[in-house]
Amino acid sequence: MNIFRLTGDLSHLAAIIILLLKIWKSRSCAGISGKSQILFAMVFTTRYLDLLTAYISLYNTSMKIIYIGCSYATVYLIYAKFKATYDGNHDTFRVEFLVVPVGGLSFLVNHDFSPLEILWTFSIYLEAVAILPQLFMISKTGEAETITTHYLFFLGLYRALYLINWVWRFYFEGFFDMIAIVAGVVQTILYCDFFYLYVTKVLKGKKLSLPA
């Protein structure tokens, strides 16, 4: 465990908690893509099935359980508890355009043709693109609440830190996982445009709004 990996995990955790608290405190999930949150719940579920087959560490097990628990709680808040505030009219990204190709790709390009391994690969590929419905929603409405942009920032920061972690692990441990690295690079690139807006607007105290 290096510092980039640890801060990456904590940044991921911060993103998840920020989103949960935002919805809980404001009693509203306006501006949040429920579709992205369902995709993230699918990502965690398919990736952490190894909770049942392998024990790595107390840290590893607890973080996995927290991630899964929080992501299901978020989906519950959006689709049940605060359903009346859910902005479904703007959450119109067609998720089958992500899930079907990603499912096909995980069958074709994987480390090992076994059920758990294919599901793990599926989760890696799906995570890379799971934020697209949220970004699509923001581009459609042309704006995002500042707290939502903090959520996106920490989510993107997590992946960027993981990239540095992989460079570190390659040099010091000779470790690399091509599937995770390629998907991680794609995922980080998707956040670049957002990072630019975050730094030039949100950090200067302005609301994130896109030109009409």
Partner: peptide, 10 residues
């Protein structure tokens, strides 16, 4: 392709 047997990352 090189990979770890145990997936220790989240």
């Amino acid at each position: 392709c090189h990979r770890t047997k145990v997936k220790d990352e989240l």
